[in-house]
Amino acid sequence: MRPFVVASVFWLAAATGCVAACSVPQDAQQQVILRFDVTDMGAMGDVPLLTLRADGHVAVPLRGEIREGRLPETEVQDLLDAMVSDGVLDLTTEQIADALAPQSTGGGQVALPGLIADGATSYISLDMPGCRVSLSAPDSALNSLAHPDAAPLQAFRRSELRLLDIVMRLQRG
């Protein structure tokens, strides 16, 4: 019975290796581990919409100032676990773009991508040992509604909504 338990634990650890690898670094509490922004500037801004450090410190710009707060360690880890579960660490910006690319609908018709002139692009950057990803998605809110079957975009959007929830909580005070 014992070998079965050991083998099961090993299999479970291997299957969820990303979750374990995406643990908050305890030796670098001041390290910025996540940045999130929504902008039309073509790149993440110098002061993103949300900055999260390993110690749970969060910063959100509000009316020309920076509002700061702290997330409990369990909430930070839950957020990271949810992002892993969403599949964000397995995504690339190219996969998101490909999911929005024009597709032939047959009969000589091509469905155009859901690009919006001057629309904002959402950016998520995660930087920790074993968990590094930098993603962008154009017009993610509208495109996620227009393309419900675009799995990479939907995964990105689920994580984006979690991050927006944190931003809104901090902005409300």
Rank of each mutant, 00 (worst) to 15 (best):
Val24Ala: 06
Glu160Ala: 08
Leu112Ile: 08
Ser122Pro: 02
Gln26Pro: 05
Met1Asp: 12
Tyr123Asn: 01
Gln31Arg: 15
Asn143His: 03
Thr121Ile: 07
Leu153Phe: 01
Tyr123Gln: 02
Thr74Cys: 03
Leu115Val: 10
Gly45Trp: 00
Leu161Phe: 07
Met168Asp: 13
Ala43Tyr: 13
Trp11Cys: 12
Val38Asp: 05
Leu12Ile: 11
Leu153His: 02
Val32His: 04
Gln103Pro: 00
Leu115Asp: 06
Tyr123Phe: 14
Pro72Glu: 14
Val9Ile: 15
Ala7Val: 11
Gly107Ser: 08
Leu100Ala: 03
Ile66Gly: 02
Arg2Trp: 12
Gly69Gln: 04
Ala137Phe: 08
Arg70Lys: 14
Ala14Thr: 10
Arg172Asp: 09
Ala14Trp: 10
Ala101Thr: 07
Gly64Pro: 08
Gln171Asp: 03
Arg67Glu: 12
Glu75Arg: 15
Gln109Tyr: 09
Val58Cys: 10
Ser104Met: 09
Leu163Trp: 03
Pro48Tyr: 01
Val76Thr: 14
Met41Lys: 14
Arg70Asp: 10
Leu71Met: 15
Val6Pro: 00
Gly64Glu: 09
Gly114Met: 02
Asp149Ala: 13
Phe156Lys: 02
Thr39Ser: 14
Leu153Ile: 04
Ile166Cys: 01
Asp78Pro: 09
Met83Ser: 03
Arg132Trp: 02
Leu50Pro: 03
Val110Arg: 04
Arg157Asp: 10
Leu91Ile: 04
Arg67Leu: 12
Glu75His: 12
Leu79Trp: 05
Asp90Leu: 11
Leu50Tyr: 06
Leu112His: 07
Ala97Met: 12
Asp37Lys: 00
Leu164His: 07
Gln31Ile: 02
Ala120Phe: 07
Pro113Ala: 05
Arg172Met: 12
Val6Glu: 14
Ile96His: 03
Asp90Gly: 15
Gly119Tyr: 00
Gly107Leu: 10
Val47Tyr: 07
Phe156Leu: 02
Asp37Leu: 05
Arg172Phe: 04
Ala14His: 11
Asp78Val: 09
Leu100Cys: 03
Ser144Tyr: 05
Leu79Lys: 02
Gln29Ser: 14
Val5Trp: 11
Pro61Cys: 08
Ala14Val: 11
Glu65Phe: 10
Ala59Met: 11
Gly56Ser: 04
Asp40Ser: 13
Asp149Leu: 10
Asp118Trp: 06
Ala43Ile: 01
Gly64Asn: 08
Ser8Pro: 00
Gln154Cys: 01
Gln77Val: 04
Ala146Cys: 01
Thr92Cys: 06
Glu75Pro: 02
Val133Trp: 01
Asp90Thr: 10
Val84Ile: 01
Arg53Gln: 15
Leu153Trp: 00
Ala117Pro: 09
Gly108Asn: 03
Ser136His: 09
Leu153Tyr: 00
Ala150Cys: 05
Pro25Ala: 09
Ser159Gly: 13
Ile33Leu: 03
Ile124Glu: 01
Ala82Gln: 14
